[in-house]
Nucleic acid binder design. Structure first.
Lengths: 189, 189
DNA sequence: TGCGGCCAACTAACTAGTTAGTCAGTTAGG
DNA sequence: CCTAACTGACTAACTAGTTAGTTGGCCGCA
């Protein structure tokens, strides 16, 4: 058996991501994570501190990466919404972790990186509005919240009216992108 | 000590609603529910079966009531969105329970009453579209999903960009209602 | 009015299994 | 041979669910 602390850490994080995404903090089992990572449970405590710290590490790795990896293009918000929509489909764990986080930890403790990424996006939207390239009907933070919120509508993890039928997802995607287009388009009523 | 089984059931349901809304199924503690209801734990099992059944009872009582108590007015979807928005602010437990439900139980098992209420709302939207009173730019189910989804944007329980400042909530409410107005208005581009 | 007994409502204490976290010791590799 | 990586076995606390037994109120009856 080769010994590689970095690889063990990585396996633990990966196993923890699956476990936490599926069951949340309270529902996750440390023993299950260790078993899935083919590592000893004590290593979790040695590398990450405790269960909650492990969750934070996983949350940071997945959610912060997602937020930072989908850059905004304030001149093409429908395209941004589409990319976010697709990312959520491809990596559903990030949204689930974010939901668990907000339910189990309260909404007060967002990582600084997420806050910073958001502020940068608000600034980008504000700049595009000032330049007259997109609608200034809404304040920039509100417009961003609309786009972000609409992009979540494809996720099966929100208790909303869920998409139906074989091409329900494609329909939903079109709905979201078109909505963003309408809401961000200049003029009209 | 007066004995009133109906009242005991009611107290247990109320305590369970608080506990489940705050901590979810896995995080909820049966002993805590019994203590908060000032009842014996065994009564929970006698009246509701087990912890999961108790959650279902609570979920049904709160979520189904919410869905049924906010009737749709397909001719005034901005008003409907406003009422839903306000309801979620006033009774945040219903949304939290719905989120816990979708995370912990999977999205497959929605109560028949919720599905029925939703179908009725889709039908109402479709009728208003056929009558030409609202935009038919989106399929009726999609339009309803948009309105519902946007109405959730005031909740602090969604990991989204949260409202900021003292009057952030009022701003958000205006954003949501105005968005729905734009998306449901006839013609334009 | 008073009484006895019946039963639903309720309770304290328990069980069996689980769980996060610890620790003394072992092992591989440089 | 030294140290970081790792392990198995442990514990103390917790947890859902059960059970045998108790109690209060109500109803028929005198």
């Amino acid at each position: 058996m080769v010994r590689d602390a970095d690889d063990t850490r990585r396996r633990l994080l990966e196993a923890a991501a699956t476990e936490f995404a599926e069951r949340g903090i309270a529902g996750a089992r440390v023993d299950r994570i260790a078993a899935a990572a083919m590592a000893n449970k004590a290593l979790i405590y040695s590398y990450f501190g405790n269960k909650e710290d492990l969750f934070e590490a996983v949350f940071h790795a997945l959610v912060v990466d997602t937020v930072e990896d989908v850059p905004i293009d304030a001149d093409d918000l429908p395209g941004y919404a589409a990319r976010l929509f697709d990312r959520i489909q491809q990596q559903p764990y990030a949204l689930r972790l974010a939901l668990w986080h907000s339910l189990e930890r309260g909404s007060a403790t967002m990582p600084a990186a997420v806050v910073a990424a958001n502020e940068q996006k608000v600034a980008a939207v504000a700049a595009a509005q000032r330049a007259g390239r997109i609608s200034d009907r809404f304040p920039p933070g509100e417009l961003l919240a609309l786009v972000t919120g609409l992009s979540l509508l494809g996720s099966p993890n929100l208790a909303l009216t869920h998409t139906a039928g074989p091409d329900g997802l494609a329909v939903r995607r079109r709905t979201v992108v078109e909505s963003v287009r309408i809401l961000t388009a200049k003029d009209t009523t």
